[in-house]
């Protein structure tokens, strides 16, 4: 009983925080702290990844590209799941903040996916001997980038922003099938890309001296994303208010 009422209280608090006016105020307080913590983690990850951590026994110094590449890949997948979830929330619940948050997150997810693809290419050329191959992992990751592009385009394609949001939400949900394909492509099919090193059964196949910079960078990317996402959602909310005020004053002018 106590748990149920606690959940209800948390839910009410979250609903209150998700009211657009309250959200702008709350996010304004949160953003500087999240951004500062993210920047600090980023610097720590850079120092550990570029200076303190050792070279790899096979790849030498080139292993350091991983500390950009892998966190960016995780963010690409995570943000897509977030965008799809927010789209579903918007479709079912009709909360205006859900669509605004999805619109704010999608370009950031595309950015992380692009970082993943470009840094991966820069690793592939010296290590594999090819900038790009059409194996299942690389191809599904490129598809993820195009799904992001589709989402961004659709959400801005209609004069009525609600229609665009709904169309983009449907695309986002359908595109979710690509997420397990990206993750498990290296296990289901023979790929040139190596299988998972960190998130695998039996624990990471990666030395702690190399796992640390990876996790630091992953935390930094998460925090930086969160800060930018809050800023962009706030921009969407105030932008919607501006549009509403503009149409109101136009109506008053006509009267």
């Amino acid at each position: 009983m106590a748990a149920a009422s606690a959940i209800k209280a948390i839910h009410q608090t979250m609903l209150r925080a998700a009211q657009p006016a309250r959200f702008v105020e709350l996010s304004g307080m949160l953003i500087p702290w999240v951004a500062a913590l993210g920047a600090a983690m980023f610097v720590a990850g850079l120092v550990d990844g570029l200076a303190l951590s050792p070279p790899d026994y096979q790849q030498g110094e080139t292993v350091r590209i991983m500390y950009m590449h892998v966190p960016a890949a995780w963010m690409g997948l995570f943000v897509y799941a977030l965008v799809a979830g927010l789209g579903g929330l918007g479709l079912v619940g009709g909360h205006p903040l859900a669509f605004a948050a999805a619109r704010a997150a999608a370009p950031l997810g595309a950015m992380f996916t692009a970082v993943c693809l470009i840094t991966g290419s820069l690793w592939g050329k010296p290590m594999w001997g090819a900038w790009w191959v059409w194996d299942a992992r690389l191809t599904s990751m490129l598809l993820l980038l195009f799904l992001y592009f589709g989402h961004i385009a659709l959400s801005r394609a209609f004069d009525d922003p609600r229609r665009g949001d709904k169309a983009a939400a449907v695309l986002g949900l359908v595109g979710c099938v690509n997420l397990p394909i990206v993750k498990f492509s290296v296990d289901w099919w023979n790929t040139l890309h190596q299988p998972a090193s960190v998130m695998k059964l039996g624990g990471p196949a990666i030395d702690p001296s190399m796992l640390w910079p990876l996790l630091l960078m992953a935390a930094a990317f998460k925090l930086i994303f969160f800060a930018l996402w809050l800023v962009r959602t706030r921009t969407e909310v105030v932008g919607a208010r501006l549009r509403a005020a503009a149409s109101r004053s136009r109506m008053e002018g006509e009267r």
Partner: peptide
């Protein structure tokens, strides 16, 4: 006609490998 190297999922410093 082309040969690509495939890397495995193990990452470690040279001394650990030794």
């Amino acid at each position: 006609e082309t040969v690509l190297a495939k890397h495995d999922e193990k990452y470690m410093p040279p001394d650990v490998a030794a």
